[in-house]
């Protein structure tokens, strides 16, 4: 399953993970916080940073777990070990945020513990192994994916803040309107296809 090496350049990996194959808008990963915490720009920005940070850690953990399991010849334990490590990391971050900034802790509310079940975080850890990246490439991939997630969250939050000023019909209010916005954003991101340099 693990291919030898992937010759892709770091810059190309970063661009592809953050823009071309944006985790939220092209892979539909992490839609829940994307719809849930994107009401306010400031909260969205901080949540984006927190998730991006966990994504980076998850990528490194995913890389390490895969190598260890490969070594003990038990690849079938991949998923369960990954999710256990992510759950622990999220718990630690929750404790850290609670101690350092109680305001942010309250603002993020339920979405902080829910990071455990954030598809983007598990997704980044799983995808890096599918791509067959080396260590540095995996780190850049995690970083790019995190930046992409943060960008999507901040963009949609900015748009939704503007939307508070208008009065849409009752029928489209709420999630439906946000989904239409997300669709338009996703359409815009399709314009990034093909960039990031040749292989």
């Amino acid at each position: 399953m693990v291919e030898a090496t992937n010759p892709e350049s770091l810059w190309s990996i970063f661009i592809r993970a953050s823009l071309v194959n944006n985790f939220v808008l092209a892979y539909f990963l992490g839609i829940c916080p994307f719809l849930g915490v994107s009401g306010k720009l400031q909260t969205a920005g901080r949540m984006g940073l927190a998730v991006a940070f966990v994504m980076l850690i998850a990528t490194v953990c995913g890389f390490a777990i895969e190598r260890v399991l490969d070594w003990i010849d038990a690849p079938f334990l991949n998923l369960i070990s990954l999710i256990a490590v992510i759950a622990t990391t999220v718990q630690l971050i929750e404790m850290f945020v609670k101690k350092v900034s109680p305001t942010l802790f309250r603002a993020l509310g339920i979405y902080l513990p829910l990071m455990t079940t954030n598809c983007a975080i598990l997704g980044v850890a799983l995808f890096q192994s599918n791509h067959g990246y080396g260590f540095l490439q995996a780190v850049v991939f995690g970083l790019g994916a995190g930046v992409g997630f943060w960008l999507a969250l901040v963009l949609i939050a900015g748009l939704r803040e503007k939307l508070d000023l208008v009065d849409p019909p009752d029928l489209v209010k709420g999630t439906a309107l946000t989904l239409v916005l997300a669709g338009i954003l996703s359409l815009c991101f399709m314009g990034f296809s093909g960039i990031g340099g040749g292989s």
């Binding site: 808008l25 092209a26 892979y27 539909f28 489209v172 999630t175 439906a176 309107l177 989904l179 239409v180 997300a182 669709g183 338009i184 996703s186 359409l187 399709m190």
Partner: peptide
Amino acid sequence: LPPGGFFSLA
């Protein structure tokens, strides 16, 4: 494509 998913769910 991805945008179609968002639109049809909406």
